[in-house]
Amino acid sequence: MRMKILVAVGVAGLLATGCAEGSSSSDEKAKQPPAPTVLPQKLTKPNAEPRPSPADDAPFDENLAYELRLKTLKMAQATGKTTAECPKGLESKSGTRATCTTTYDGLKVVWNVTIGKKSGWSDNVVEFNAVPDKGILTSDGVARLLYGNYRDSIDHARCNDIPKAVLVPLNVKTKYSCEVVFKGRTPGGLAEPVRVTDAGPRVH
């Protein structure tokens, strides 16, 4: 029976953004507000991706590699081709450390992995901690976040040309920003910086 893996993942907070309204002019030569800056990239709602799993008799290193592929997809929050490789013959013993590598559409991420204890409810389930050396930012991932947060209240979202997929530092503000355009509003309001966590993008 193959060893399965349980991953404990923290949940990051959702974003909260708003739109800024222009101030009205007065009769005493009040300065007119500058014309709003409209971000060039319009995001559309993305689709989901199926996830294949290893064979029933796959060794532990292949099961771990599969779990890291899922974590890579979770970080990207978008459809993409993934691969993963962990040291062959890796043991599921608690305290074991290893370095594994995943790719997402050719972008490489190195994971420092520490194997934890068995879950307690099954000898075939092992906990582990995996820390990536960098983040993967995708335009579809940001779109999924924004459309998921605002649902029917959002008309669309605008960003400053986020690539389809790009490597960025983890958990820090990137050079990319986005604005949520609500129904009945026009673009040119508040743009918020984008960052990436191991659980996906955040905009705040």
Rank of each mutant, 00 (worst) to 15 (best):
T102S: 12
T102H: 12
T102E: 06
T102Q: 11
T103L: 09
T103G: 10
Y104W: 11
Y104C: 08
D105Y: 04
G106E: 03
G106I: 04
L107V: 02
K108I: 13
K108C: 06
K108N: 06
V109R: 12
V109D: 04
V109N: 11
V110C: 07
V110Y: 08
W111Y: 06
N112S: 15
V113W: 01
I115F: 00
I115E: 00
G116R: 03
K117P: 03
K117I: 01
K117Q: 05
K117V: 02
K118D: 02
K118H: 07
S119Q: 12
S119V: 11
S119M: 09
S119I: 04
S119K: 10
G120S: 05
G120T: 00
W121S: 15
W121F: 15
S122I: 03
S122V: 10
S122E: 07
D123P: 15
D123F: 05
D123W: 08
D123A: 14
N124W: 09
V125T: 06
V126L: 04
V126Y: 00
E127D: 12
E127C: 08
E127N: 13
E127M: 11
E127L: 14
E127K: 12
F128R: 08
F128Q: 03
N129R: 04
A130I: 01
V131Y: 06
V131K: 14
V131F: 09
P132G: 07
P132S: 06
P132M: 05
D133A: 13
I136S: 07
I136Q: 04
I136F: 03
T138C: 12
T138G: 13
T138I: 08
T138R: 08
T138N: 10
S139D: 13
S139H: 08
D140Y: 10
V142L: 09
A143F: 06
R144V: 01
R144W: 04
R144L: 14
L145M: 09
L145F: 02
L145G: 04
L145V: 07
L145C: 11
Y147D: 04
G148F: 00
N149K: 07
N149W: 00
Y150Q: 07
R151Q: 06
R151W: 07
D152Y: 12
D152Q: 14
D152V: 13
S153N: 09
S153A: 14
S153C: 06
S153F: 00
D155W: 09
D155H: 13
D155K: 15
H156W: 08
H156T: 10
R158M: 12
C159W: 09
C159H: 13
C159I: 08
C159A: 15
C159G: 14
N160S: 12
N160L: 13
N160A: 10
D161Y: 12
D161L: 15
D161S: 15
I162S: 06
I162W: 00
I162R: 08
I162E: 04
I162G: 11
I162F: 01
P163C: 11
P163D: 11
A165F: 01
A165S: 11
A165R: 01
